[in-house]
């Protein structure tokens, strides 16, 4: 990111969760490795299955994280999460096998800061404190996603169990005794 862009980015992202535990100079060091990327409304930032080489933070606008669902033989994207200014996306870039597990699409004209994994790794090598604080926050993002999907999955499983139990009991009632 160019020095001219830094103050605005710092102002917007300095208070973001991801940078919460970082000193001001450390935030500047991290942001200096990023590159601003504008996105038109409806444009995809990445697709499920793509190589994940970059991690992103939303600087302006809003993006939907989507999962594909097949309807009548065509694949459509279902929004599962929405991320706005200061929120991070694309943690797959920091975790093997480095492939995106969702697609990200801008719902309005947006701008993200892209951090290349290699640049972050270089920075982490020389700044262990930044690595610890940054990866702790990323772990929270990953953990929240994991627990959310775990809860959504177990609720659907519970519904399936209840539905099956109800089906069996109504079948037994219709069959009558004997």
């Amino acid at each position: 990111m160019s020095p001219a862009e830094l103050p605005r980015t710092e102002q917007v992202l300095g208070r973001a969760d991801l940078f919460r535990d970082l000193a001001r100079d450390d935030v500047r060091d991290v942001l200096a490795t990023g590159r601003a990327r504008p996105l038109d409304a409806g444009r995809y930032l990445f697709l499920l299955g793509d190589n994940a080489d970059e991690f992103f933070v939303v600087l302006a606008g809003r993006l939907d994280l989507c999962l594909p669902i097949t309807l009548h033989g065509t694949v459509k994207d279902v929004r599962v999460e929405s991320v706005g200014v200061g929120q991070a996306l694309g943690w797959s870039a920091l975790v093997r096998p480095y492939r995106f597990t969702l697609s990200a699409r801008a719902t309005e004209p947006s701008e993200v800061i892209a951090f290349a994994r290699v640049d972050l790794q270089d920075l982490f090598e020389t700044h262990p404190a930044i690595r610890f604080a940054f990866l702790t926050r990323v772990s929270e993002v990953v953990g929240t996603r994991l627990v959310t999907f775990q809860a959504l999955w177990v609720r659907e499983l519970q519904r399936a169990v209840e539905s099956e139990a109800q089906r069996r009991s109504s079948g037994e009632a219709a069959g009558g005794p004997g």
């Binding site: 697709l47 499920l48 299955g49 793509d50 694949v75 459509k76 096998p97 480095y98 492939r99 697609s103």
Partner: peptide, 15 residues
């Protein structure tokens, strides 16, 4: 590994 995995097609299909 990523370069080797590039051969795997993306899951997304344009409707």
């Amino acid at each position: 590994m990523v370069r080797a995995a590039e051969a795997i097609p993306s899951f997304f299909v344009k409707p």
